[in-house]
Amino acid sequence: MSSPRYWRGIPQRYRLEAGKCKKCGKIYFPPRLICDECKSREFEKVNLPKEGKILTYTIIRVAPSQCTDQAPYAMGIVELSAGSTGKDGVKILSQIADCDFDKLEIGMPVRIEFRKIYQEGEAGIICYGYKCVPV
């Protein structure tokens, strides 16, 4: 990933910063410019809650080139708890780290941890972001 592209995503990757429509309350992660429910252009920043549960998951055994050292690893869709956002939980795609594959199950509670996502070889940038770990 190029340095500028990584940098643009830092608020989302590091702090789970989402956009909440000021008119209808719908939450977008990553944020958008126009609400597709009510067409409003006014959003406020909210940080998504750091707890949730696994909706579904899979084990990646043939990984993309930057992640081959990590394979096999689990990826999941995680529904974050509603928390202070006051709406249905936002669903995110995330690696599920520090887990035993035979103990993974749908509905399992997880929380967000700050981890290294991958690095650009030996000389490039190190990309950080969120992963989920079992509670």
């Binding site: 780290a97 700050f114 981890r115 992963k131």
Partner: peptide
């Protein structure tokens, strides 16, 4: 440390 952990990730947590 796990392969995805370093001084920065542990400091943040």
């Amino acid at each position: 440390p796990g392969p995805d952990q370093d001084t920065i990730t542990m400091s943040v947590e």
